[in-house]
Nucleic acid binder design. Sequence first.
DNA 1: TCTGGGGTCCTAGGACCC
DNA 2: TCTGGGGTCCTAGGACCC
Length: 429
Amino acid sequence: MSFMPSDKMFALVDCNNFYASCERVFNPALKNRPVVVLSNNDGCIVARSQEAKDLGMAMATPIFKCWDFVKQHDVRVFSSNYVLYGDISNRVMSLLSRMTPHIEVYSIDEAFLSCDGMAAGALADYGRQIQQRIKRATGIPVSVGIAATKTLAKVANYFAKHQKDKGGVLCLTRKEDIEHYLCRLPLEKVWGIARRKAAFLQRNNIQDVLQLTRAPDRWIKKYLTVMTLRTVWELRGISCIPLEEVSAHKKGIGTSRSFGRDVTKFSEMQEALAAYTARAAVKLRAQALLAGYIQVFIATDVFKEERPYYQNTSGMCLDPPSADTARLIKSALCLFQGIFRRGLIYKRAGIMLMDLSPQDCEQGDLFERIYQHSARRRLMDVMDRYNARTNSGKLFWAAEGLGKPWSMRQAYTSGRYTTRWEELLKIKI
DNA sequence: TCTGGGGTCCTAGGACCC
DNA sequence: TCTGGGGTCCTAGGACCC
């Protein structure tokens, strides 16, 4: 199969070791040291500095299994500080937006930029410019991969990061270069192919990505679905995944957490669910959406084999759809009542809001004022604005409880340096 | 003692309709 | 004797992403 020429060109900008790099920006003592960042509840490793990767610390390893190793190699450990990472991410994305009119913010640490119409010779320079500007303005190192499809831009980015001589920028536009890298790329590193599909391909005598691009379409579609077929076309240089500059409105908004300690009491579970619902409702209103369906789930610890495992989910329609926290909490707690079993030790709980629709398309109701024009909406607005302005969460619902004894562990948090005055970095001279 | 959270999309299979 | 088939909707489960 040949590589088709295309008039499309994408740059993928990816922050290196993003969370670890964020911690480093405000703490120069972390430079050249192994740093790891933990998941919520201080569970497992979700980000590692290059030094930590070089020591062999694997992604998703439970941290309780590595404390000896951490001491031995003087690894610095942090709880995740999403307030800080989110704010730095916004700064990076806003810098990128100033460098191009066409950008898709793909995740907290990645963005695709359109480079359509740029001269082939200018692409690598453009990549280096991006890199320098982000580094100077935010302190975050980024890698840039440039190619004719998003999937190939991901490939380019992978090698920009992993080959030291590339200096963090790689432009993959020539057929020979693409083939050179595709046969050196492990299958599971392709965007859209993970362990399962890679193993399936290997069992079927497809050992590298170049071989995959040469497999027959019909076979790929039959055994690996149309999604993988699209990926393969992209690897062949045919752009099938467009730049999505405006993100489509979400299909679901959820909040779930593992508890910081065992929870058995009905009342504590109720408080946790009320708090998660309130959080999800804030996210819902921030996007000017209404929820038409709410779902609650609870579960005991899946890792405790000696205890009985129980998990259950329950949902109901919200008619008319709503973004009123009080109403959502009431529904959530009613659902919870139906699935709670006494005598169990719970570990996780969560809520999902689904069947979302824009507030401004709200259907009228014959007998009630619709949410959009109600006093309830004004109340929600006041709460959201106050909490956002004071950055405090001081206004909350009584149902959330006061002590939050079930809240997650976060024992190694750094400061919210960029969003809280009282946590501003202090420098002694 | 200690194992994340928030999403997306596709497929298969059942129920139901005409 | 002869016993359909196409379409839609829903749900659960799997695989993947960061």
